[in-house]
Every structure is written in structure tokens, then in C-alpha cells.
Simulated assay, not measured.
Amino acid sequence: MPNFRKYSYSQDAMVVINFDDQLQPDTFEFTFHRLVDGHIDLSPF
């Protein structure tokens, strides 16, 4: 049986990450995000 640490609600475990700030210009990920977000119609999904 696994041995887990006890959880405390007062601990700061959540880190807020804004993925738009993580995308660097001139990378594949940036280009792909712009293509999907702005040029492809995703309404059928």
C-alpha cells in the first residue's frame, strides 16, 4: 500500500501558469497556436 504525505490545505501548491506567456515567437508552438486559434474554424467540434 502506498505511503502518501498528509495533505495540508494551508500549503501553497498551485502555480498559475499563463500558457500564452510561455509561447515564444518564431517557434513551432507559437505558429501552431496562432493557426488553430485564428485561422481554423473549430465550430463543428
Rank of each mutant, 00 (worst) to 15 (best):
M1N: 10
P2W: 11
P2N: 07
N3E: 13
N3M: 03
N3F: 10
F4V: 12
F4D: 09
F4I: 13
R5I: 03
R5E: 11
R5V: 03
R5A: 08
R5K: 10
K6R: 00
K6F: 02
K6V: 00
Y7R: 06
Y7T: 09
Y7D: 12
Y7H: 11
Y7E: 14
S8C: 12
S8K: 08
Y9W: 12
Y9E: 12
Y9Q: 14
Y9V: 14
Y9D: 15
S10L: 04
S10H: 05
S10C: 05
S10T: 11
S10W: 00
S10P: 06
Q11N: 13
Q11M: 14
Q11P: 07
Q11T: 15
D12A: 13
D12V: 14
A13C: 13
M14I: 14
M14Y: 14
M14L: 11
V15M: 15
V15C: 06
V15S: 13
V16L: 11
V16Q: 15
V16F: 15
V16H: 13
I17C: 14
I17N: 13
I17E: 15
N18C: 12
N18D: 11
F19H: 08
F19A: 03
F19K: 09
F19Y: 07
F19N: 12
D20E: 01
D20T: 10
D21K: 09
D21S: 13
Q22T: 04
Q22R: 08
Q22P: 01
L23K: 08
L23D: 02
L23N: 01
Q24A: 13
Q24H: 06
Q24L: 10
Q24C: 04
P25A: 04
P25T: 10
D26L: 06
D26N: 08
D26Y: 11
D26W: 03
D26F: 06
T27M: 11
T27Q: 01
F28Y: 05
F28A: 09
F28G: 05
E29D: 13
E29Y: 07
E29V: 07
E29P: 06
E29A: 09
E29Q: 12
F30G: 00
F30D: 12
F30I: 04
F30Q: 02
F30Y: 15
F30M: 06
T31K: 07
T31F: 02
F32E: 04
F32R: 02
F32C: 04
F32Q: 07
H33V: 02
H33C: 07
H33P: 10
R34W: 02
R34G: 09
L35D: 00
L35P: 02
L35M: 08
L35E: 01
L35H: 00
V36I: 10
V36P: 01
V36R: 06
D37I: 01
D37T: 03
D37P: 01
D37C: 00
D37M: 01
G38S: 11
H39N: 02
H39M: 06
H39F: 03
H39T: 03
I40P: 00
I40E: 00
I40N: 00
D41M: 02
D41T: 00
D41V: 00
S43F: 01
S43C: 11
S43E: 05
S43N: 05
S43G: 07
P44S: 01
P44C: 04
P44L: 04
P44E: 00
F45A: 07
F45Q: 05
F45L: 05
F45E: 02
